[in-house]
Design a protein around this nucleic acid. Structure first.
Lengths: 262, 262
DNA sequence: CGTGCTGTTGAGGACGATCAATGACGGTGG
DNA sequence: CCACCGTCATTGATCGTCCTCAACAGCACG
């Protein structure tokens, strides 16, 4: 059911500014700026970033029931937060992109885990250490709070997305496209299997397949290969009734500077 | 479409400790304690609490597109956060109970509003004033952050709830029961119309009606009156595959004391 | 060259939406 | 006091959608 082949993962802690440390800071900087927060103390995180290793597609990054003592930041690849339901079904709650924390907090629900959708590389931050940094930085705290809020908005939209298969899948794909664009991923080829889409949309694989084919016939998805490649973003957004402005909270909530000292 | 009859609502600001101010602090104290945070500086909020008035059932507490300069706290009654979709449909995202903020933040989405499900009384906190208090209180900040996280968990569960009508409705009702119990509402009579349930569960009114009747035949809901009254909580939870431990984040995340100075 | 995973296709059946109509109830105004 | 109206609950009939089961094709991998 679950291949558990971690590709790499030795932590290092020699205090030098390592490549993954630089990558982590850059990713977080962009993400927080997109939330309308310029975190000045971000460099405080550099010395405490550790190598989180690489994880092969399909493997768990955080296993169900894990209570890790570090937070995991996704550097490369795509992951998904999912819950294994009682009947064995996998319900995907959310996809994670570079710059997202896989587990800022330990997951309270023992059936919830994080899995690599494509091969992932990671950075790790010890809980005690990151907590001290957070305690010292008003802006970092605000940024993390806002990112929690953004998650809430994304979930809300997912609830509202129509029960019909076509708009539902379209909406899901639009969200992914929008989030990828926000972090500079220009490719419209999405690394999901139809099984992934089914588990995320809450539809059967068979029906997702038919829906994908219908979208291909409409020239919304590419018929060239068997991958999920979006060719007509406009129409996809229209089918999914996707607004997307809910992802742009930069200046929308910027007048709300809770906990930032002026 | 929308009755806009605000029953009361004169703000007062004479600095005296008013009844609604006392109520607001007590509600927030209980709520934050249930999140595992004991906010010592909660009394800082007392002098800035203003009367938010009363709103009749069915009326909007916060209208779509409103960008209020104050945060609204629900003191009595039940409200719902909803979005008016393009086709006129009302999609209910969440229900609000006493101690919940209707709008801690201004809503970025212009189609989202908050409506009184039953008659509500409110307290209001000026943005500038509450912001200053939040900036000064580490524990208050943590508590508010956690309440944002709790919202996220609740939304996640809603996404996972099975598409079939019966478990879906059961899950929704269980969540409400659990949240009501958490704030000491012992009554198992829920103040929702079947229309409310339909809009929240994403089902048609007709089908919700049949589902409710089925639940009554199973002696899970009361057949005595036409209200939604839960008689068999156990069975309801079993039908809705409701766990509920996701609502108890008190000590689950208590070792994670972000931004609290030790 | 099997083995496994993904994608694809067909057929049948369950479930929920829609349309339409009726009943029950409370409030309002003549 | 009663006729009228709006909201909510209820019921029946029909139709479309999506699920399930089952089988097979393509492809990567060992």
């Amino acid at each position: 059911m679950q291949r558990l082949n971690v590709v790499g993962g030795a932590g290092n802690n020699d205090g030098s500014v390592s490549p993954y440390s630089i990558a982590a800071i850059a990713l977080l900087d962009r993400k927080f700026k997109s939330l309308g927060v310029d975190v000045q103390d971000l460099n405080l995180l550099a010395p405490i970033a550790k190598d989180g290793g690489r994880v092969a597609a399909g493997a768990d990054i955080i296993r169900a029931g894990d209570k890790p003592r570090h937070s995991t930041l996704l550097l490369e690849g795509v992951a998904c937060l999912y819950k294994r339901l009682a009947d064995g079904t996998r319900q995907i709650y959310a996809f994670k992109y570079p710059g997202d924390f896989c587990d800022l907090l330990p997951e309270p629900d023992d059936a919830v885990a994080v899995q690599a959708v494509s091969e992932c590389s990671l950075a790790a931050f010890d809980h005690n250490e990151i907590e001290q940094v957070i305690a010292r930085s008003n802006t970092l705290r605000l940024a993390l709070w806002r990112s929690t809020m953004l998650d809430t908005f994304i979930f809300r939209e997912r609830i509202a997305s129509p029960p019909a298969a076509m708009p539902r899948v379209a909406h899901l794909l639009c969200e992914q496209l929008a989030r990828r664009e926000a972090i500079g991923m220009k490719s419209t080829v999405l690394p999901f299997t139809q099984i992934d889409l089914a588990d995320a949309a809450g539809l059967s694989v068979v029906h997702v397949n038919r829906t994908v084919q219908a979208l291909r016939k409409l020239n919304v998805l590419s018929s060239a290969n068997s991958a999920i490649e979006v060719v007509d973003k406009k129409q996809l957004a229209s089918i999914g009734r996707f607004d997307g402005h809910y992802l742009n909270m930069p200046r929308l909530m910027s007048h709300w500077t809770l906990s930032v000292v002026h």
